[in-house]
Amino acid sequence: MNMATKPNRIALITGGSRGLGRSSALSLAARGVDVIITYLSSPDEAAAVVKQIESMGRRAAALRLDVGTASTFADFASDVKKTLQNTWQRERLDYLVNNAGSGVYAPIADTTEQEFDLMINIHLKGTFFLTQKMLPLIEDGGRILNTSSGLTRFTFSGYAAYAAAKGGIEVLTRFMAKELGARNISVNAIAPGGTETDFGGGALRDNAELNKQFAGMTALGRNGLPDDIGGVVAALLSEGTGWINGQRIEASGGALL
């Protein structure tokens, strides 16, 4: 008896050209998922990720997106729809990973309104309205994974605006899970801890003293690497985790327990 071939799963990862997004894209590809990544200012880096995914036997594409400018999201959704049709002959994708972002480091007393608005626009407003525009392109039974931060649980001076925006993402995640349950779409938030990337100018990665200090606060005795987070993202989007819904999952190696 001929059995219908199940379509390959497709994930859209914002900010997938570097850092945690890149590791998430490669980890998903290693598990057999095709990937669309977005980039803001590094098309060459994005093209390299696409090439690496293709070398793994998967299909991939890269599209430009500024997650801080919601007025561009309708056009971006049209680009995604065209890419799905042209590359996969599909109308919808399976997974949306809202990963793209940036940070501001400033004490509350010194944070400008422009810096605060930037954090809200990129992280909270961007996640809200990009998801809104992508909903018609997500399969029923699909998954959405929003990116929060360990800084919503533990605190360090200088990250108030960033962490407040991420806290909003965690509340938004629960509301998304509630409202999208009728479509059997589960929604969760991943909260990375200290991870050695270029976040904050690469301070945790490049400052040996800071690296040692934060590692000493972590139960597993080291700081995270991008592949640690990519592996968790891939696991949370795997076949056996669909019953996890509306949750904040911290991936920090046990920081400040």
Rank of each mutant, 00 (worst) to 15 (best):
V67W: 03
I36W: 08
S27I: 10
V33A: 02
S24F: 13
P43F: 09
A30I: 04
E45A: 14
L20D: 08
G19V: 06
A62K: 08
M56V: 07
L65T: 06
A48E: 14
A62I: 11
V67N: 10
S71N: 02
R22T: 08
R22V: 02
A47G: 02
G57I: 09
E54Y: 00
P43K: 03
A60T: 03
Q52R: 12
S23D: 15
R31N: 13
V33M: 08
L20R: 12
G16N: 08
A62Y: 04
A29W: 03
V67K: 11
L20F: 07
A47R: 15
E54D: 00
I53W: 05
A70Y: 12
A29E: 03
S27Q: 12
A62M: 04
R31Q: 14
V49N: 04
D34A: 05
A47F: 05
A62D: 02
T14V: 04
G15M: 07
A25P: 06
V50D: 02
I53K: 09
T14C: 11
D44S: 15
A61E: 11
A61R: 15
L40R: 10
D66R: 11
V35A: 07
T69C: 15
G21K: 08
A70M: 10
L20Q: 10
G15E: 00
S17R: 07
R59T: 11
D44V: 03
S71I: 06
S42C: 12
G32N: 09
S23M: 15
L20T: 07
S55D: 10
V33S: 04
S42G: 03
R58W: 08
G57E: 01
S17E: 09
A29H: 01
A25E: 05
L28N: 00
A46K: 01
E45V: 00
R59P: 08
L20H: 11
S24V: 12
R22L: 13
A47K: 09
S23C: 13
V49Y: 07
D44M: 03
V50P: 00
Y39N: 01
A46W: 03
I53G: 04
S41R: 13
A60M: 11
G19L: 06
Y39G: 02
D66Y: 13
V35W: 06
A29F: 05
R59W: 04
L28P: 00
T14L: 07
A47C: 06
P43G: 03
L26T: 05
A48I: 00
S71R: 01
V49F: 13
S17Q: 08
A25R: 01
